[in-house]
Design a protein around this nucleic acid. Structure first.
Lengths: 352, 352
DNA sequence: TTGTATGCGTTATCAC
DNA sequence: GTGATAACGCATACAA
């Protein structure tokens, strides 16, 4: 005869499958089946089990489920910050895509640092997510090894990759920036400067800068390639205003300020409005990204728009496809979501 | 003699503690200890174990750890949407507060719907998070029961609660709105209207509306209490612009539009600028929340500012304190983060 | 300081 | 259609 076990400190003391089973007068296995594959259980039994679940207040322990089934139903998302609207929108799109499938989002922030990404990645892999979404296509060597060893679907985003880990949902930052340069050069701008933030881990911003410098070298080889950078973590609008101020002071001959993000550019436009600087008459402004605000400021911002939420959504669907079901898994994909040139009033045709 | 076991399909085929132990020539226990309590293991052994961990590429399975230790090191966060900057900022603050402690964030969105909150809550509780952060202090009855049964720390945010589930980090939306009304009424405004979105699940917005209506009844009892509402999910700036348009058309005698969020108000100001409506001369505008943009538009927005990121940070710290360590857990707390009246140029003294 | 036995709550597998 | 049993990978408790 077994002694009645004293509940150990280890136990959660929360309702378990076994208790539901006892309540319903069936085996634990039947309860499990009634929950996840009701078609395999008689209707009457399902009814009884569901009633017992309600009566006992049972909430399945997914950690145990995960351990036994080797599926976590979790998707890890690593982004630089939640506070930048582009990433927030991406997460929102991702959530909408995967939550109907029962997946939960595990979110980690890297602060635009690849070493932080590696650290967070290592920790998150401990949870054995069914898939991972990363912002960016450049990672530390160790990160790539971790991803390879994890043998789970990985979606890299916000860029295209020549050597993807697995799947990619992004666009060419270089081409988008080049398209914008084509546009403004076509309007007659000849002395543009670039302004933004370029932390070493923000490869996407660095790509845009490379496109700027390459484009300048090709189109206006005689002009200096001037890049204004600002460190710090104040608000994007304030940074944009500060950068604009600096450009006006330190590069008075510039005819155009190309910002690496719409938030900076919008901050510059708003600041110009307050200070009586006429855009585009005195100085042209462009942005990058398609932040909502750009369409509402006066003058309307000229920019290239990128579908942030769609990146999340498509990454989510690609991931679910890739994770697959009953043994069939999808193939790696590369999805180019493209970009859209958005001509605005913040630049205008220049007289040669 | 035991037959060598064939790796079943159940296995992750990833490196386990046992394999590291075999590699290092110690028991699994020693490996576990070397990782989490190195002080209890001899230095030489720790070295050897760490080397084996690197050599094998071991990544601890946290689901197993969770199951065995009854700690998930996960914190569940339920917010209406990630796309609203206030919630994004809160999540960012929360992440910064809890990630140093090794906690991971599980994020779910409710779309301002209490029934969705209940649904997501039920699913998330299956992961046995060590703590939960909720936006709002009003929940379905079932949600409250689930929370009570889970017996884990819960932090409700963005409001104060007369009957909190556990702990609270918020402020009084009612008082904040009233303070704003005091301010504008003191300036001489007598025919204000309220404009915003009021989904049934957005109790915070409803509180602000109640404060508006109560304040009107008290201060200008003779004036009609007009509230303009707009459904739909377009961008906040666009909604603000539309609402502003409607107010001008349908309430031409109004002297002030009080928006329920800064994003709406900023959209209205930007729209007014485009259309040549003079703010505050033709019509005053106020916001709510302290969205960065309000300080950058012209005229600067009059609003009450709320510390979004600080709500997340303080909720995170309160949660960690409340979860406790080695047997000692903190007490429930109620933290009022307050609000700050931000006088701007979007309202001005009226001649009686 | 290190090792052994056992349980955590669920699902895969196989038997009935 | 239902049940019994053995994993899943780790940490707690206790023994050595």
């Amino acid at each position: 005869m077994t002694a009645k076990r004293v509940p150990s400190r280890r136990s959660t003391r929360s309702v378990t499958l076994a208790e539901v089973a006892a309540h319903a007068g069936v085996s634990a296995q039947t309860v499990s089946r009634a929950i996840r594959q009701p078609s395999l259980v008689s209707e009457a039994t399902v009814e009884r089990v569901l009633a017992s679940i309600r009566a006992t207040g049972y909430v399945p322990n997914l950690a145990a489920s995960h351990l036994a089934s080797n599926r976590s139903n979790a998707i890890a998302v690593l982004i630089p910050t939640v506070s930048a609207s582009v990433f927030a929108d991406m997460v929102q799109g991702l959530d909408q895509a995967v939550s109907p499938g029962g997946y939960h989002l595990l979110i980690g922030t890297t602060g635009y640092r690849l070493d932080r990404e590696e650290e967070v990645l290592r920790a998150f892999l401990g949870r054995r997510p069914d898939g991972i979404v990363l912002a960016g296509t450049v990672h530390t060597e160790a990160s790539r090894e971790l991803l390879a060893a994890a043998r789970i679907p990985v979606i890299e985003t916000w860029e295209l990759a020549q050597d993807p880990v697995d799947s990619v949902v992004g666009f060419s930052n270089h081409d988008a920036m080049s398209a914008l340069m084509d546009h403004v050069c076509g309007l007659g701008y000849r002395r543009p400067v670039l302004a933004g933030q370029f932390p070493p881990g923000d490869v996407r911003a660095l790509r845009r800068r490379a496109a700027f410098e390459g484009g300048m070298a090709r189109r206006v080889p005689e002009a200096p390639r001037r890049v204004f950078e600002m460190a710090g973590e104040s608000s994007s609008l304030a940074i944009g205003a500060d950068l604009f101020e600096r450009v006006r002071r330190e590069a008075p001959d510039a005819d155009l300020v190309m910002f690496t993000s719409d938030a900076f550019a919008a901050g510059a436009i708003l600041s110009a409005n307050r200070q009586g600087v006429r855009v585009p008459h005195d100085l042209g402004i462009t942005g990058f990204g398609g932040y909502d605000l750009g369409a509402h400021v006066s003058p309307q911002l000229t920019t290239v728009s990128v579908p942030s939420a769609a990146i999340g959504e498509r990454a989510g669907h690609a991931l679910i496809e890739r994770i697959g079901a009953n043994g069939r898994t999808g193939e790696p994909v590369t999805i180019d979501v493209g970009y859209t040139l958005v001509p605005g009033e913040s630049v205008a045709r220049r007289q040669g």
